[in-house]
Design a protein around this nucleic acid. Structure first.
Length: 507
RNA sequence: CGGGCUGUGGCUCAGCUUGGUAGAGCGCCUGGUUCGGGACCAGGAGGCCGUGGGUUCAAAUCCCACCAGCCCGACCA
């Protein structure tokens, strides 16, 4: 009767069409869906739950490093925005601009914008300039420094080609903005926050990354230095998972953030900014998902354990549900990494198979079935999302309760190890230009298979080479990793190179 | 913003060439049989065919304009 047993929950499979698989997974898992507003998405409760977990956990890390949250305006006066030239150049093409303050009905009764603003307002694509304006007022003395503030907000970048979570017109993020007395302190802050991101994605999202510096051409507009962490997702492309910028005195100069230093002289502050976005949700999907849907790392799963009552007979239904509730209560009293375990009893009256698959697609880490037979034996049937969909282990109820945190931890670790192995296997040292080109050229040009990966190769540091490679292969330097400086020769020009850099196709 | 394709119940699409007033599968609702891995049977609800105009006795179908979406290019977290 069941001829669909081997069928995957998501069509197409990852190896058939990765971008399409991604879209299908995001929708099937009810993380998000496109909205009627072009380029914007609706983040559904399951997706938003993931975001809230990320937010809460990262926010705690910001607090621990001395940062506090604040909120600045959504609208940035055009004149403020215009203060930093490179910044303008970088963002001007994707700004939404508010020009009117009112709607009026015309003769046909159609609403039209009216009452033009004397100065247009830019909807923030990022907040350096508007926050800088406040900082300029707050800072007078070196005693006012450092300023360590973070903001959780939405931003708008008028993108041409939206994809759920990965690139949408409006997205949610966190942006830290700090001011320091010295260059060294600001540089240390930039690095510190990159390390925070690295730890966060590794320990909470089970994502291994390469961390380092961006090349000049990939730098944030207006920054002196941009650091980033880069992850490899399952189509072997790179995705930026977080960035931290050392802004030098560029923005301080533009915004007038000045202070009297210890020698009594006026000096511009040294600023940094750093951010992480809802794009990370898409990264998690592409990192850990499989052909049956999302696979969530337990630490960010909105529900970590779902209890599925099996109620084939009306006469046992009440007792089964009662035992399910009792188990849920017991589990909620246990902690997994300092937080109560999130448990849900799914008592909806729909087909058992359908219900089970819904949770598989959503990526809930642990599914627990309890049916009449379990009542007899005081047992439960446990399935882990990091194992085969049909795998099920029967264990005594008390044993499961005792082992729940350990099981979650084990899943979290498995996901990380799996991702690390994948990344390692598809990262390789490339020693010649020919090897480089063949590494990044798919066998089939018409329908490119998943190919390439990260190439570690020497580079002479020139923008021209980067440009050439980007044109030829759509491959860029995703990051210049820290440390490991091992001199060699640029594989493209033969010129001296101080270290290997990471090349990849990238999101 | 340039080039190509597509708009038909919630979703995927057929119907369009050869105009005659709308269909399928899935989903949804009801009842029953089921239920420890995507069940089955029976019945039912749901669409001014993207929008506006034109041709015609008659338009989902032909013509024009507009809008939206997808893919490909330029840009990006």
């Amino acid at each position: 009767m069941n001829t669909t047993a081997t069928k995957t929950a998501i069509t197409p499979r990852r190896d058939e069409d990765f971008p399409e698989w991604y879209q299908q997974v995001v929708r099937a898992a009810e993380l998000a869906e496109p909205s009627d507003v072009r380029g914007c998405m609706v983040i559904r409760p399951w997706g938003y739950g993931v975001w809230e977990n990320m937010q809460r956990q990262l926010d705690a890390m910001f607090r621990a490093t001395g940062h506090r949250n604040a909120y600045f305006p959504l609208f940035i006066p055009l004149s403020y925005f215009a203060r930093e030239a490179e910044h303008v150049e970088g963002f001007a093409k994707e700004c939404a601009v508010v020009t009117h303050s009112r709607l009026e009905a015309d003769a046909d009764g159609k609403l039209k914008p009216a009452s033009a603003l004397t100065e247009p307002l830019v909807v923030r694509p990022t907040s350096e300039t508007i926050i800088g304006a406040s900082y300029a007022k707050w800072v007078q003395s070196y005693r006012d420094l450092p300023i360590l503030i973070n903001q959780w907000a939405n931003v708008v970048r008028w993108e041409m080609r939206p994809r759920l979570f990965l690139r949408t017109t409006e997205f949610l993020w966190q942006e830290g903005h700090t001011v320091h007395e010295t260059e060294a302190e600001a540089r240390a802050e930039t690095k510190q926050m990159l390390d925070v991101y690295e730890r966060f994605v590794r320990d909470h999202l089970a994502i291994p990354v390469f961390s380092g510096e961006k090349s000049e051409s990939e730098r944030f507009p207006g920054a002196v230095q941009t650091l980033s962490i880069e992850a490899m997702v399952q189509d072997r492309k790179a995705i930026q998972a977080g960035t931290s910028h050392f802004l030098g005195q560029n923005f301080a100069r533009a915004s007038g953030i000045q202070f009297q230093n210890r020698e009594g002289k006026q000096e511009f502050g040294w600023t940094t900014s750093w951010g992480m976005t809802t794009r990370l949700i898409g990264t998690v999907v592409m990192m850990h998902g499989d052909d049956d849907g999302v696979v969530l790392p337990p630490r960010i799963a909105p529900t970590q354990i779902v209890i599925l009552p099996i109620t084939p007979k009306e006469e046992t239904r009440a007792r089964v549900l009662e035992v399910c509730d009792k188990l849920a209560k017991q589990l909620r009293e246990i902690r997994y990494v300092d937080l109560p375990i999130e448990v849900e009893v799914d008592r909806r009256e729909i087909g058992g198979g359908v219900k089970n698959w819904e949770w598989i697609k959503k990526g809930v880490p642990v599914r627990v079935e309890i049916g009449p037979r379990d009542l007899e034996n005081n047992s439960v049937a446990v399935s882990r999302r990091d194992q085969a969909v049909k795998a099920k282990e029967s264990m005594r109820m008390e044993e499961f309760v005792a082992r729940a945190p350990e099981i979650l931890m084990s899943i979290q670790n498995t996901l990380y190890e799996r991702a690390k192995k994948f990344c390692d296997e598809n990262t390789r040292v490339v020693a010649s230009k020919d090897e480089f080109y063949s590494f990044f050229t798919p066998k089939s040009a018409a329908k490119p298979e998943i190919h390439g990966g990260f190439a570690l190769a020497h580079w002479n540091g020139s923008r021209e080479v980067e440009e050439q490679i980007k044109n030829d292969l759509k491959v860029t330097i995703c990051v210049i990793p820290f440390g490991n400086s091992e001199p060699g020769r640029c594989i493209f020009t033969g010129e001296p190179s101080s270290r290997r850099v990471v090349w990849a196709k990238s999101y």
